[in-house]
Design a binder for these strands. Structure first.
Lengths: 335, 335
DNA sequence: ATGAAAGCGCTAACAG
DNA sequence: CTGTTAGCGCTTTCAT
């Protein structure tokens, strides 16, 4: 039983086989101009015969280009991150780029953030951050990044970004819920302090509500982990604290689904007893009849990846801050 | 406003600064023995002062080690993949390893699979596959991989793997549902043809049911996409086709949740009118009261990553096929 | 259009 | 314990 020899063919093998120099092989295989088409064909044939694949480390060392993009997020287990990742991946793969993922928690020590970030920038051509909201020292690092950065969710001074219009999210939620003949409101939100996304949405919601003549008591804002379990817990606390509430705005569908499930388990009916509104348009929202505010998450990932590639190709590209309009989707959990 | 010079400090800069040779710097910084502790301290100090981070491409070229692990899955947007990824990431990060992710669809053309796989193996020390179930040519590629492979979900000849005991999953489901005074059963499953996971579970479920004296009609097996929307669609078809069914076994919680939501929306009560059982113990299962068969997904990722690291360190490590025992969790969706 | 040759920044023998 | 010396496999001037 003969094993394949453990050494991969090198560019020299291809050159010898094709009867040309290594430089020519390099040019031919990378599709550079100034290669006779006959030569190129010969080289490509030889490469295929040998099963040649260039060593990425060698070519990176020589060229200085990493052909790799780094993605940083606090957590890749969330629905949001998974969707974004899928969008990014599709773009990068079509460009034959590698794709390195790293979690950096929002509360990573500045020193560790510094080191991890420095190590990362050394091996990628650009970075995409997902909902990072770094603390000040980390933020500074990102701003000073030697490679281009594109952020999702928040905006970094000097870099391009994409996010949903969070103020509009709050306004849309308030308008919809206020119209529904409600008078007692509640919010279930994540506990990520310093998350501009959440704060903006909550503030916009509250002040829009005020314009409709409604007031939301600050004790009716429930801080929970950003999961379905958190949403359920928030709903339980709401029921204990203020059973008169008839409308609850959850800052993500994952939380909303948990809340909805809990409320229904307690015998409440939506929307007659209580309205529940989420944000995201999670794939479970439709089957559960959850009204929500849609944002096209996977396409955010696509945009970010494409923007980053453009930025890698042309570092002087103008900064673009894209703000996407959210859209209300009324299903059966609100009236 | 002065920009940081674009060139990173190199190992030579550190050597000069510390007054030693580059080889010594290399040894000192990698924690190799045979370095005087005073020398090491000097080198570390110099490196820190300069903000030195070794160029990974150069060190990989020189050492032949990639210090990177590749992860292949058909799709990273699923709950399952996200959880596994989280587990893998935690392990790899603690070992300072990079982490490349690639989607390879189950129906990728053999030729493309071949090329993508070859390119990947050139840049990683090992590979983890998640629920890949490759077609024959792809499978052969994986088996012949020049770098170690650890698989989740399915078993590859010659390589270690971890999966839940799928036959037990089916048996547990059958035993639980048969006990609940049901007589008319249904299955909602994914449509991934050739997925050993699903086939095994369905077969075990069916034959265990037979032992309890029950028979499931093949027209009551609904093939749907493996999402909540698919589950809802399956439930709708079930209601149309066989409204007498009182127990439905869904092959994932995501599908079960969709089914549950649809059934409840149609006015059916669980478990009095109908029982719904899932598999996974998704985080939404608890808030929704979904009975399910638990599998510790994130820890599968941890195990796979640790196994792969061990395999990279010692390629002759014995193959280990780990089969995890699933556990029934009864909540309020089954009787 | 092609070849020769000089590195890219690091690791790994081999001496000492 | 430390320094010297070759490369690792490619890309990139600079010639031709």
């Amino acid at each position: 039983m003969s094993k394949t020899p453990p050494t991969n063919p090198s560019i020299d093998d291809v050159a010898r086989r094709a009867g040309v120099s290594t430089a020519t092989v390099s040019r031919a295989l990378r599709g550079l101009p100034n290669v006779a088409s006959a030569t190129r064909a010969t080289v490509e044939f030889a490469a295929k015969e040998l099963g040649y694949h260039p060593d990425p480390h060698a070519s990176r060392l020589a060229s200085g280009r990493a052909s790799t993009v780094g993605v940083i997020a606090p957590y890749f287990g969330s629905w949001y991150a998974g969707q974004v990742l899928t969008g990014i991946e599709a773009v990068l793969r079509s460009e034959h780029l590698d794709f390195l993922i790293t979690t950096i928690s929002r509360r990573t020590e500045p020193e560790e953030f510094r080191d991890r970030f420095a190590a990362l920038t050394r091996r990628v051509d650009g970075i995409i951050t997902i909902d990072l909201y770094p603390s000040a020292p980390g933020l500074q690092r990102l701003i000073d990044s030697p490679v281009p950065v594109v952020s999702l969710g928040d905006e970094l001074p000097g870099w391009s970004s994409i996010r949903v219009d969070d103020a509009r999210v709050g306004e849309i939620a308030a308008a919809h819920l206020a119209r529904g003949d409600n008078s007692e409101f509640a919010i279930i939100r994540g506990r990520s302090s310093g998350s501009p996304v959440e704060d903006t949405r909550v503030e916009a919601f509250t002040s829009a509500l005020a314009e409709f003549g409604h007031h939301i008591n600050s004790t009716n804002v429930y801080f929970e982990t950003e999961t379905a379990a958190g949403g359920a817990s928030g709903a339980r606390r709401l029921l204990d604290h203020d059973p008169r509430a008839t409308a609850v705005f959850c800052l993500s569908d994952e939380m909303a689904i948990g809340a909805l499930a809990h409320l229904q388990a307690k015998g409440l009916r939506t929307p007659s007893d209580i309205s529940v509104l989420g944000v995201d348009d999670h794939e479970l929202a439709a089957p559960m009849g959850l009204s929500t505010i849609h944002q096209p998450v996977a396409s955010h990932g696509v945009w970010a990846a494409e923007k980053l590639l453009a930025l890698v190709a042309d570092p002087d590209l103008a900064v673009e801050r894209r703000v996407v309009e959210p859209g209300l989707i009324v299903r059966s959990s609100t009236r």
